[in-house]
């Protein structure tokens, strides 16, 4: 794999994960447990989709086949999507929503932090802006994991269940493949070992504070999103998200 190929692939992963997680949060509009949470969820979703747009725009320039950011988001099918499986998991109850957000936010925070020092200046620039947002997301989701884990008996039970449900998707966040390694070697992407170490450290710290038990480190992990092999959920997400662009392919302006 050449560095140029790996870069395009890597940008799509960043974009797609932001996009799909943002989409999941949009589904919660009007359904949050408090008005403050309505605001916060939409705020986080807005940040993520905004970041997705920035990554897509850069990816579109490099891919350079006439597709723009919207075409990349709304006209690729599931097998072409490169998001992490974690981000496409259903909202379920608020413990799952917050657990998913927390596991992703830790990965996202350390990734972006590293990307601010990327040898690719465009990436470093986008990451610098995104890092501020991800810092807020992480503070928020880790607070909720603690509140729910160390709240009532019921919230503890639900939060532990959420950790157990989601644990099998955490491996993909910190397991590097060829693309990740090429990016790391070029000084573009984060060092995979460091990322894994940082992720484990913070996750363990927060879960301990939340009186929760993490999954086993050698647990079986469900992976494939980064290569376009998704869970059954993604097809439905895209069917809804892409409906207008697919139903009215002749429309050039919306």
């Amino acid at each position: 794999m050449t560095q140029a190929e790996a870069l395009k692939e890597y940008l799509l992963r960043l974009a797609d994960s932001d996009m799909i997680l943002g989409q999941r949060l949009c589904e919660l509009c009007g359904k949050a447990p408090a008005l403050e949470e309505e605001m916060a969820l939409m705020n986080v979703a807005l940040d993520l989709v905004g970041q997705a747009r920035n990554w897509y725009e850069y990816a579109a320039e490099l891919i350079n086949d006439g597709r723009d950011a919207d075409k990349l988001a709304f006209r690729r099918d599931a097998h072409e999507y490169r998001n992490l499986l974690m981000t496409e998991q259903p909202n379920e109850d608020y413990a799952v929503t917050m657990g998913r957000q927390f596991f992703f936010d830790v990965y996202h925070y350390f990734t972006l932090k590293s990307l601010t020092e990327s040898s690719d200046e465009r990436i470093a620039g986008i990451a610098a802006k995104a890092l501020k947002e991800a810092t807020y997301h992480l503070r928020r989701s880790s607070e909720w994991v603690k509140r729910l884990g160390d709240g009532t008996e019921e919230s503890h039970r639900r939060m532990q269940e959420a950790v157990d449900i989601l644990w099998r998707f955490t491996g993909e966040l910190i397991t590097p493949d060829d693309t990740d390694r090429v990016m790391a070697e070029a000084g573009i992407g984060p060092d995979p070992d460091q990322l894994a170490k940082d992720w484990r450290g913070m996750v363990n710290e927060v879960l301990t504070q939340a009186t929760l038990t993490p999954g086993a480190e050698d647990a079986w992990m469900y992976m494939g999103g980064k290569h376009g092999e998704h869970t059954e959920h993604l097809g439905f997400i895209l069917a809804e998200m892409q409906f207008l662009q697919r139903a009215y392919p002749d429309a050039t302006t919306w």
Partner: peptide
């Protein structure tokens, strides 16, 4: 349905 969240 959010009652348990607020209680927590």
């Amino acid at each position: 349905e959010g009652a348990w969240v607020r209680e927590a």
